[in-house]
């Protein structure tokens, strides 16, 4: 058994390293070119009380008077050692802010991701297997409507209906206000998670459904699906054994490739529900000119999205017997 697995994975990791370096350069350049003045952002309203000489002193201390290339080198060196700097908005090391935010966002995003994947796949397989029937039409209409719904609008509607109108769900945040973090129960956390989760899930579903449906229709008309019918297989038999199995891979790929959109959606949903996650931190960092945090979020997101894409790629090689990497692994006595 000869296999080029290690090579494949190594190449991917090298590619990710290059990508990260490129993103670091571009993100740093953008931050430098933006009108954000770190000193001004740091001082806030207090800037009125600080004279220009003192401002220059602060800039000097931070190394802002040095050429951008030197600044970049210094920042990159620190990042490489795991020091992402201090966040001005949260007055904490960026690493700590990220860790806290990821911990809040991860359950939300992971659950939304899984649920939208499962739901979207099930709907897509059903619609594709029953193409052009009323079932298909309902699912398709639902998916088109959802696909064209803006996240923040849906989030606001959910808030208005379930939190304000019916008062079933809390209006904001990840935990009840005025309760110490260690006293919050799992149930309370889940209660606060419901609406953001629904908003994110519902939006992710549409894409997976439409992709799965298209692939499913193609497979239901394939020679092997017809042959299964000729063997006396029922529609459900063909849809599950041949359809679902063969559409699972493209669906999973779309799911992993949509991680970037998921993050984009979570920025908006977290903003509307005031959910203290990574997305909200990114918005906060942008609004208040918190450059170290902004750069760290950009790097974090790069890793997140490209790891997702890499997993999709690897899955393709693992699952589909016809694609290269595992080609010589199957015929085994």
């Amino acid at each position: 058994m000869t296999s080029n697995w290690p090579l494949f994975v190594t190449l991917r990791i090298v590619r990710l390293a290059f990508l990260l370096a490129a993103v670091a350069v571009v993100a740093f350049m953008l931050a430098k070119m933006s009108p954000v003045d770190p000193v001004q952002a740091y001082l806030g309203p207090a800037i009125a009380k600080v004279g220009p000489e003192q401002q220059d002193l602060i800039a000097q201390k931070w190394g802002l008077d040095q050429p951008p290339l030197t600044q970049f080198g210094k920042w990159l060196g620190n990042v490489a050692q795991g020091d992402l700097g201090m966040s001005m908005t949260y007055n904490e090391p960026v690493v700590d802010v990220l860790a806290k935010r990821v911990r809040a966002s991860l359950p939300l995003m992971a659950m939304a991701w899984l649920l939208s994947g499962l739901l979207g796949f099930a709907l897509g397989v059903t619609a594709g297997a029953m193409a052009d029937t009323w079932v298909d039409r309902i699912i398709r209409t639902y998916a088109y409507v959802l696909a064209s719904t803006p996240t923040f609008w849906l989030a606001i509607v959910l808030l208005v209906v379930f939190s304000v109108g019916l008062a079933w769900t809390p209006v904001c945040c990840a935990a009840p206000i005025g309760v110490l973090p260690e006293d919050v129960t799992v149930l309370e956390r889940l209660h606060h998670l419901i609406l953001p989760l629904i908003a994110l899930t519902v939006l992710g579903v549409a894409q997976i459904t439409l992709h799965t449906r298209a692939k499913m229709i193609e497979i239901m008309q394939s020679d092997f699906a017809l042959y299964a019918r000729a063997q006396g297989a029922s529609l459900a038999d063909v849809a599950i054994r041949h359809g679902a199995r063969n559409t699972a891979l493209p669906a999973i790929t779309v799911l992993f490739a949509s991680l970037g959109e998921l993050f984009g959606g979570s920025v908006l949903a977290e903003q509307v529900f005031a959910y203290p996650g990574l997305g909200r931190a990114a918005v906060q960092a942008g609004v208040s000119g918190d450059v170290p945090l902004l750069l760290a979020v950009a790097l974090c997101l790069t890793v997140f999205v490209s790891v997702g894409n890499t997993i999709a790629d690897i899955l393709y090689h693992v699952v589909d017997p016809r694609i290269g990497a595992t080609h010589d692994m199957e015929i085994r006595p």
Binding site: S222, F224, L226, Y227, R229, A230, Q231, R245, N246
Partner: peptide, 23 residues
């Protein structure tokens, strides 16, 4: 036909594409 297909009558199809490539 639903009762007979596969039991009383069977098809030998034309090409390899009639077998599920992933199974």
């Amino acid at each position: 036909r639903q009762r007979y297909c596969g039991r009383r009558m069977a098809l030998v199809p034309q090409s390899l594409s009639h077998l599920d490539p992933m199974t």
